[in-house]
């Protein structure tokens, strides 16, 4: 049954499950968009710089959409949520808070995440929260192009051999340690499924992801490192690294100098 924000706020358990899910979505996109934007002016060529910046803007734009839905459910305003929540209140996967590393690692992380994000959104198309289901249709249209873009980079850098391939292999082995954290749905997975907020649990997300990812590794000529394991810390439960602390510090430096001022 489709439900609106007004209906959902009447049921505390449902509301809690939904806000957790929306924080996961918002925080993933915000962290990644922020990291992407760090490449501005620094990409390997000027054309790539412009393209990557469009992707960064899309990701932050998607974060804004999820944060607005949270505000509808009675959470603070989007700016407040983006800039003033501590690490313990953030629900992004640890993979997305990590620094970019080199171009190979940036591409590998992005592509692995984009496939995951696509699968997650697919599981949200029938979400019982009406405006989420609607928004995801539009977001998926944009993410489709990110997927194509990063698939091209992923495949070609891996196929190029030489230094590029070495760097790609290195990036895969580094990123693999945290990939498993993407699939977690946090503390209230059961409620999310029970209320029909998302159609697929963490195990299913991981399975579907591996099914799609493996052939892409084959195509790129990269060895499949095996099913990712669950990392020690779960970002979906508010467990994070110093990287996120630093990211938040940077992001809120200006607004934090006077939180009451208009900026």
């Amino acid at each position: 049954m489709m439900q609106t924000a007004e209906q959902i706020v009447q049921e505390p358990r449902l509301r809690h499950a939904l806000t957790e899910l929306l924080y996961q979505l918002a925080d993933d996109e915000l962290c990644l968009g922020h990291r992407d934007s760090e490449w501005l002016g620094l990409a390997p060529d000027i054309e790539g710089d412009v393209a990557f910046s469009s992707i960064a803007q899309d990701e932050v734009g998607h974060a804004v959409f999820y944060l607005e839905r949270l505000h509808e459910l009675g959470e603070a305003k989007p700016d407040q949520l983006a800039f003033f929540r501590g690490p313990g209140e953030r629900r992004n996967a640890i993979l997305l808070e990590q620094p970019n590393g080199d171009w190979a690692r940036t591409i590998v992380r992005h592509f692995l995440y984009d496939i995951f994000d696509d699968i997650r959104m697919e599981a949200l198309l029938q979400s019982s929260f009406h405006s989420l289901a609607q928004g995801v249709v539009k977001i998926r249209r944009e993410e489709h192009y990110h997927l194509l873009h990063h698939k091209m980079w992923f495949t070609r850098l891996a196929q190029a051999g030489g230094e590029a391939r070495q760097r790609m292999e290195q990036a895969v082995s580094e990123v693999w340690m945290e990939v498993g954290g993407l699939f977690s749905l946090g503390e209230v997975e059961e409620e999310m499924l029970h209320y029909g907020l998302i159609a697929c649990g963490s195990e299913g997300l991981a399975q579907r992801w591996a099914e799609r990812m493996r052939p892409l590794f084959d195509e790129a000529g990269l060895n499949w490192p095996g099913m990712p394991v669950k990392p020690k810390r779960d970002g979906r439960k508010g467990e994070h690294t110093k990287d996120l602390e630093r990211l938040i510090q940077t992001m809120s430096e200006v607004v934090g100098s006077d939180p009451d001022a208009q900026w």
């Binding site: 501005l40 000027i46 412009v50 469009s54 932050v60 940077t250 200006v254 607004v255």
Partner: peptide, 28 residues
């Protein structure tokens, strides 16, 4: 660019990202 990661609101963050992107685009 130094201020892109520190833009003080989400609106400003999106705007300055697009703005700096335009400059690089002009360069291209």
């Amino acid at each position: 660019k130094e201020w892109v990661p520190k833009a003080p609101t989400l609106k400003r963050k999106l705007a300055i990202m697009a703005k700096v992107q335009d400059e690089v685009g002009h360069g291209q």
